[in-house]
Design a binder for these strands. Structure first.
Length: 783
DNA sequence: TGTGAGTTGATTTTT
DNA sequence: TCAACTCACA
């Protein structure tokens, strides 16, 4: 079909170069669509091209909704769509984010206020512990974890406290029946939700408000759901409710990659999609464009052992590639060392770059030895997860202040910070305060306002609490300021920074560095959301980020992550470690056929991330709680086509095949030449800050050290210049002003020439705001 | 009230 | 292995 050149250019871009199957999916417009996409089959390409095509067909972007499971996936989709279509107004994001947004609008429908807090797992756990105590429940045969999981399961299956019915004689069920209502009540009292509530509340909202449901159905006429195999009942209900009048629902997924059953994901959703939606068009994307034939065969053989699946034929036109390696190491240490040595060898030989490699493991705890080994071989790496940035104590402390400022009913936040830093409000006083609050049915903060009236409270404690409330109110005056400024004030006025600065401990210095990162994150947020008054949104964003979001594809580092986090990614060389019985499959999943299949899928996901080379390994001995224990190889290994793989026992002395890299010389260099190691180590550390943009969360080898280095270096170079660069000024810094004398920077906000600093001067405690770039402020002399 | 030593108990995966 | 929690003491 010939049209004018200008008009035809775009459609041609979008539809060109697609296989018949892909084209079928991309050009599908109305009605339900199921895309069964095997690994590496170009799924993201199909999805983005299809959205572009919808837009091309004149469908307004506002009517399109694309739901993903991770922010990373959403960002990736956005980026790729942006290359196809200018400025799409399509809403793309995670289920949880979408629900949070909807819930803010309709909070009152479910008994919340719009400024509700989102509690993370730890917050929710605390609240659950209180609920357990409240109900006087003693756990004998269950853990709090188990109870939390059961409640989460109920919520994911749309069981509200009223609807929950335990199986008869089921111990855990009986506990849940008692505690679940109390827990939910507390959440409501605190004007808070947990992660599961985001979905549950929205599902409820849609079910109980026909008119609202119809309105939203009409608004989101074209819905896409990525990773549909991982949806749970609540998510299913939401998507379903929005696709009744306009059943233009397109889902993509792969039953073989469903790895979130433990989170309530229901494989039936995808397996029975065709029953749910009559007239569905099914497109199968089976050709793999990622992996070599050798890798794909291994993946295929493994997954064939699953019974509950849709048979799919994986094939590729890619080259055969080297055989998949299966190595047995004596110990976990040898495993880690040898992998690091192999990578180092390849990198030094110039054959590969660090970023070409990924190491996957079943549990986070397994990352430690690998980290050590990589560090020993001076290889830069990024580790996804570990201790998540937003889960760190200092970050949670500061955020708790913000949470309480945003939602004064958030008792969990108050409990967290009422005595942090220490202000002489001890456990006993807090307990009395809580008791008073409980009796009067007040949020803790309200109770604290009346501390003078609480009889049980000693004079000193009452006064300390009153001071805390005064501090809170003072900070409250700044809630509409830019977030970075608010965080700065919190750090200064609460004395939090001062305590850390005065501390000698290494740990606290690291905390300071982390807080510096939080300030950077706040600053970046302010830049994206100018004008201030977006505290709530900032908190929401920080609650809903996941650790996998921290992974950066651009950085030249070896990637370490769990198999779960690996989904959706791709690397030339992949190592999967600890393929041992009890770890993969995990022992908690070993004895249940359904769970075992999920473990097999997990391994399948890991294998199919590799495009060129794959190594599976296990060790004869592995440390378990500090003790070396003999291991048993994973039964999954027996299911692989071992006759065509490179199966090797490893002694460390044997002549090694050429792919092993130069193990011997490497080991010698490290052992013999300690000074060289140190030198290279320093190099690595100095490189670090540049390689990692400020706001990104990852466990760096030594945040305190690295950021100390930049700051000091920064200061030295900048100070020698005639004009002081604005970037010199940091939160908490002591500065000099020709007219007002010395003072402390208590807050900073804005950027470039508009960057403002609020300085509190020592002489009269007055606060003044300066445009940093044009002020006469100078950093005070450091002795 | 805060601190430090000592004990205990737990470790799957994540929005 | 390690972090969180308890208990005794200042």
């Amino acid at each position: 079909m010939e049209t004018t050149a200008a008009a035809s250019a775009r459609p041609a871009d979008i539809l060109v170069g697609l296989t018949p199957a892909q084209l079928q999916a991309v050009s599908h417009v109305a009605g339900p669509l199921l895309i069964l996409a095997g690994p590496g089959s170009g799924k993201t390409r199909v999805v983005t091209h299809r959205i572009a095509n919808l837009l091309q067909q004149g469908i307004p972007g506002k009517q399109i909704l694309a739901l993903t499971f991770t922010n990373k996936a959403a960002d990736e989709m956005k980026a790729r769509l942006a290359r196809l279509v200018p400025l799409p107004t399509v809403w793309m994001g995670t289920f949880h984010r979408f629900c949070a947004r909807l819930l803010r609008q309709y909070a009152s429908y479910v008994g919340l206020e719009e400024n509700f807090s989102i509690y993370d797992v730890e917050d929710a756990r605390r609240m659950l512990a209180e609920a357990l105590a409240d109900e006087g429940v003693e756990l004998t045969h269950a853990t709090p974890d188990g109870v939390a999981h059961a409640i989460s399961w109920a919520k994911n299956n749309l069981l509200t406290p009223e609807k929950y019915e335990p199986r008869r004689g089921h111990y855990l069920g009986g506990i849940v029946e008692k505690v679940y209502p109390a827990y939910q009540n507390r959440l409501l009292q605190a004007n808070a939700v947990d992660f599961d509530d985001l979905l549950l509340h929205v599902a409820t909202l849609l079910r109980e408000n026909a008119e609202l449901r119809a309105r939203l159905d009409d608004r989101y006429r074209y819905i896409l759901v990525d990773e549909y195999q991982d949806t749970n009942l609540a998510q299913y209900a939401i998507v379903r409710a929005l696709s009744i009048d306009h059943p233009n629902l397109a889902v993509t997924g792969d039953p073989d990659q469903s790895i979130y059953g433990w989170r309530g994901a229901n494989l039936s959703n995808i397996l029975e999609f065709e029953k749910d939606f009559p007239n569905v068009r099914v497109v199968r994307l089976e050709q793999n464009y990622r992996s070599t034939k050798a890798i794909l065969r291994v993946a295929d053989e493994l997954i064939r052992h699953n019974v509950r699946r849709k048979q799919k034929d994986l094939f590729t036109d890619n080259p055969e590639g080297p055989p998949v390696r299966l190595i047995t190491y004596p110990t976990q240490r040898d495993e880690a060392d040898h992998i690091a040595a192999t990578i180092a060898g390849q990198v030094q030989a110039g054959r590969r770059r660090p970023r070409d490699f990924a190491i996957f493991y079943r549990t986070n705890a397994l990352s430690r030895q690998l980290e050590h080994a990589l560090r020993d071989h001076v290889l830069p790496y990024q580790i996804v997860n570990g201790l998540e940035f937003y889960q760190r104590k200092e970050i949670k402390d500061v955020l708790a202040y913000l949470h309480l400022l945003n939602n004064s009913r958030s008792d969990v936040a108050l409990l967290r910070i009422i005595n942090v830093p220490a202000r002489k409000i001890g456990k006993a006083s807090v307990a009395r305060l809580a008791e008073y609050a409980r009796m009067k049915g007040l949020p803790l903060l309200e109770a604290a306002r009346r501390s003078g009236l609480i009889e049980d409270l000693g004079k000193g404690a009452a006064l300390a609490i009153a001071r805390f409330v005064a501090l809170y109110d003072r900070l409250g005056e700044s809630v509409h300021d830019p977030v970075e400024e608010l965080v700065g004030r919190v750090l200064t006025d609460t004395g939090y920074r001062e305590v850390l600065e005065n501390s000698e401990s290494e740990e606290d210095q690291e905390r300071l560095a982390n807080i510096e990162e939080l300030l950077t994150a706040a600053r970046e947020f302010d830049i994206r959301n100018p004008g201030g008054g977006h505290l709530e949104q900032f908190l929401e964003e920080s609650s809903l980020v996941a650790d996998t979001d921290a992974w950066e594809s651009e950085v030249d580092r070896v990637t370490l992550m769990t198999l779960h986090a690996a989904k959706g990614l791709e690397f030339p060389c992949v190592f999967i470690v600890a393929v041992e019985n009890g770890l993969l499959p995990h022992e908690r999943s070993m004895h249940d056929e359904e769970k075992l299949e999920e473990e097999r899928r997990l391994m399948f996901v890991g294998i199919t991330r590799a495009s060129e080379e794959l190594q599976l390994s296990h060790a004869d001995y592995r440390a378990f709680r500090g003790l070396a224990c003999p291991t048993v190889p994973s039964p999954f290994l027996m299911e692989l086509p071992r006759h065509e793989m490179d199966c090797l026992g490893f002694t460390g002395r044997k002549t090694t095949p050429d792919w092993v890299g130069d193990l011997e010389p490497q080991a010698h260099a490290d052992a013999d030449d300690a000074s060289q190691l140190v030198d290279r180590d320093e190099e690595f550390v100095q490189e670090d800050p540049d390689a990692v943009p400020g706001s990104k969360r990852k466990r760096s080898t030594s945040p305190a050290l690295t950021s100390g280095l930049i700051t000091a270096a920064d200061l030295l170079t900048k100070q020698s210049r005639p004009r002081v660069s604005p970037s010199v000024f940091k939160h908490g810094m002591v500065v000099d002003h020709p007219d007002y004398g010395p003072g402390t920077i208590i807050a900073l906000s804005g950027e470039g020439t508009k960057r403002n600093a609020v300085v509190r001067f020592f002489s009269d405690q007055s606060e003044r705001t300066f445009r940093v770039a044009f002020s006469d402020l100078t950093p005070a002399e450091v002795e």
